[in-house]
Design a binder for these strands. Structure first.
Lengths: 213, 213
DNA sequence: AGTTTCTGTGAACGATGTTCACGAAGCCAG
DNA sequence: CTGGCTTCGTGAACATCGTTCACAGAAACT
């Protein structure tokens, strides 16, 4: 065999990602992977602990790719000398939208993966990879003339990310594809604008949180 | 048998929801339902088309319950004569947080259900039930002194909902439970405040949307 | 060469979703 | 009351999964 062990693993991951992208989580089957990779089922379990292990590895690749996409979008704007906070936040959001559209099956599969069991056992690695994204957003916010300390910047960055994430995922869960794509852009634009204008007023928001009665 | 056909269906749904709540999607098994309901596997398939059909029916109940929770929160504030937009939005968000906490397994299962397959076949019924939630938010926004036409109110309502949704789901996907619960409240407060202040400045946002280059 | 360690294999096992032939139970006409 | 017709519950049976593991062959080491 001319194939290294690690090389075979990479091929398995590529196949697994393609399967996820085409048919979602249900399409990730051990026998299909083995057949397409030209190995036996047992070898798949030799390379990875579980099918969940394969899925986790694919998810890592996806998160890495998302990170590069965000960094690349910022580098692209920096190359054009664009430093406007609004434009940079919109570019980040647009990069995320493009990423989701480029991974129509594997990205929903990543999201679904984390919801399979109510109590997550070890999501730490995910958080670590997302932190670099929050870092990018926080650094952009730091360039604006908001009076936010580092803690509030961190929270604001996470809030922005989660909001964009919610808009995108909720938008793609809706029925029409193209009509909602425009609405996603509208919602993102509204969110970013409102966020910037809301923060520009100054004043930190250290409230107790929402309580009804 | 003293049980009506519809009554048995209700019991199956209650059992199914409990199973989902305890163990997530993986815990929804036809044989477990049949055993706990005191019927045979075939009868489950007589009452519902699929296991997916059972899950869909459970999801409908959940969405209905979420709708009442939102309406009840608004009615509660109205009973206390509270008309402040900020307080009402925070109360709505708080109601959603409580709802998610009250359904630790079945709500993630609903979200995961929509992500199982990349191309959704018929999510229309979901949207219909969510529309009433958007209506509540839009009506609250209408009471504020923002200059938003009906279209922008609709978009703003969806944006707010999606953002809160993203904050809550991203928050609960994080590792620590209690520490993140505080951060969820902080993020929601920040979002609502920023949203209100951003909208108060006036001016509609009819931008083309985020484009990078 | 002999021994040990590693690794790929695929048959086998258990669990699960789904079907369907069978039978019991109601219902209605004669 | 009886015979046919319909409806509905049943659970054995089938296909398809994930996962394991005894075995064989290759490789490495003494």
């Amino acid at each position: 065999m001319a194939l290294d062990k690690e090389e075979t693993g990479e091929r398995v991951l590529a196949i697994a990602e393609a399967l996820l992208n085409e048919g979602g989580m249900d399409n990730l089957k051990a026998r299909t992977i083995a057949e397409q990779a030209g190995i036996s089922v047992g070898s798949v379990y030799n390379l990875f602990s579980d099918l969940d292990g394969v899925h986790r590895a694919v998810n890592m690749r996806l998160l890495d790719r998302l990170g590069v996409a965000g960094a690349a979008a910022m580098a692209d704007l920096g190359r054009h000398g664009i430093t406007d906070v609004r434009q940079r936040l919109l570019a980040l959001a647009a990069a995320y939208v493009r990423f989701v559209e480029a991974h129509p099956g594997s990205w929903p599969a990543l999201l679904a993966f984390n919801r399979r069991r109510p109590v997550l056992t070890e999501p730490d690695v995910y958080e670590a990879r997302l932190d670099q994204l929050f870092e990018i957003i926080a650094s952009v916010l730091a360039d604006g003339d908001f009076d936010l300390d580092e803690d509030m910047r961190r929270i604001a960055a996470r809030t922005l990310w989660s909001s964009v994430h919610g808009i995108v995922t909720s938008g793609y869960a809706a029925r029409s594809v193209r009509r909602q794509a425009d609405e996603i852009d509208q919602q993102i634009a509204l969110l970013v604008n409102v966020f910037i204008r809301g923060l520009e007023r100054g004043g930190t928001f250290a409230h107790s949180g929402p309580t009804a009665s």
